[in-house]
Simulated scan of single mutants.
Amino acid sequence: MDSIRVFAPATVANVACGFDIFGFAVDNPGDQITLTTSDEPGVRIVDIIGDGGRLPREAARNTAGIAIQTYLQHIDRTDIGLDIVLHKQMPLGSGLGSSAASAVAGVFAINELLGRPLPILKLLPFAMEGERVACGSAHADNVGPSLLGGFVVVRSYNPLDVIKIETPATLFCTLVHPDIEVNTKDARFILKNEVSLKNTIIQMGNVAGLIAGLMTPDYSLISRSLVDVIIEPVRAILIPEFNEAKKAAIDNGALGCSISGSGPSMFALSRDAQTAEKIGVAMQQAFSAVGITSEAYVSEINRQGPRVLPN
């Protein structure tokens, strides 16, 4: 192949109680990347579509570009020439893992283009370098599920230990992105450095309960465990109408509802597609009541991760 086109999915990180350790992939939205080989060595970004001109065109400063560069350095193939076209299909600063999807799409695409010299799990550190460029921290709670698909647990960073767990076949996610922007660095800055022992114990119980509920599966346990007593109460103030949108989700059958990543997007989990659609409408109505427009997406958990698209 001299060209390849790849889709990588958006993700929900934190998943209420699992700050920085939980994440899962969704079917929609996501980012696309096209890589084309060139006679001129080096990695070049020739076009970015859908970013409004906001993302850097220099490969070393772009999440997809740096992920590909570090991958090529690792396998000692810096002689290769690559032209990149990145198609952003989700809002920037949305809390949907936009930078992660671009990094994953890039490193997955180059690995496929070169005949898969590395197994997929070995691609994770390169995608994490894309996150470092985007927000200053090489975290894995977005790139992990985007690359591996499904629901992942980041048990440790030193050494890196990421585990993919089974989820119920009929678990649906509703994502609602209000048209406001929350900066990831700001969302981290407002967090408290210390947490009470009481809240730590509650949160640990919910973390364990959510994993058990997903793997059993036990929808009632999933619902009881989708509670965040540490991060959500602080970050909710950054999202207008958060409480109203969350109440709308619960009132319309959601198992639970919380902030996706650092926000402003919100997610809700439910047991079927019809309920998930109903939840999306209700949450959007809560935002529109105060003049905030929004986008809604409904899908099952994406268990595949990135995929090659026809050129």
Score class of each variant (00 low, 15 high):
24 F>R: 00
24 F>K: 00
24 F>P: 00
24 F>V: 02
25 A>L: 08
25 A>T: 01
25 A>P: 00
26 V>A: 02
26 V>F: 03
27 D>C: 11
28 N>E: 13
28 N>T: 11
30 G>C: 03
31 D>S: 05
31 D>F: 01
31 D>M: 02
31 D>E: 04
32 Q>I: 12
33 I>Y: 02
34 T>K: 03
35 L>P: 00
36 T>S: 14
36 T>I: 07
36 T>W: 06
37 T>M: 15
38 S>A: 12
38 S>W: 10
39 D>G: 10
40 E>R: 12
40 E>H: 09
40 E>T: 14
43 V>K: 02
43 V>Q: 01
43 V>G: 03
44 R>H: 13
44 R>C: 08
45 I>C: 01
45 I>N: 01
46 V>W: 08
46 V>P: 06
47 D>I: 09
48 I>M: 11
48 I>R: 11
50 G>N: 13
51 D>I: 01
52 G>R: 14
52 G>F: 12
52 G>M: 13
53 G>W: 08
53 G>D: 04
54 R>L: 14
54 R>H: 12
55 L>H: 11
55 L>T: 08
56 P>K: 12
56 P>W: 05
58 E>F: 10
58 E>W: 10
58 E>G: 09
58 E>K: 15
58 E>M: 13
60 A>K: 15
61 R>E: 15
63 T>F: 05
63 T>D: 06
64 A>G: 05
64 A>Q: 10
66 I>T: 03
66 I>Y: 07
67 A>E: 02
67 A>W: 00
67 A>C: 01
68 I>E: 05
69 Q>R: 08
69 Q>H: 08
69 Q>G: 06
70 T>W: 00
71 Y>R: 02
71 Y>H: 05
72 L>M: 03
74 H>S: 13
74 H>W: 07
75 I>Q: 06
75 I>M: 07
75 I>G: 02
76 D>M: 07
77 R>Q: 09
77 R>L: 04
79 D>R: 03
80 I>S: 01
80 I>R: 05
81 G>S: 07
82 L>D: 03
83 D>H: 04
83 D>E: 15
85 V>C: 06
85 V>N: 04
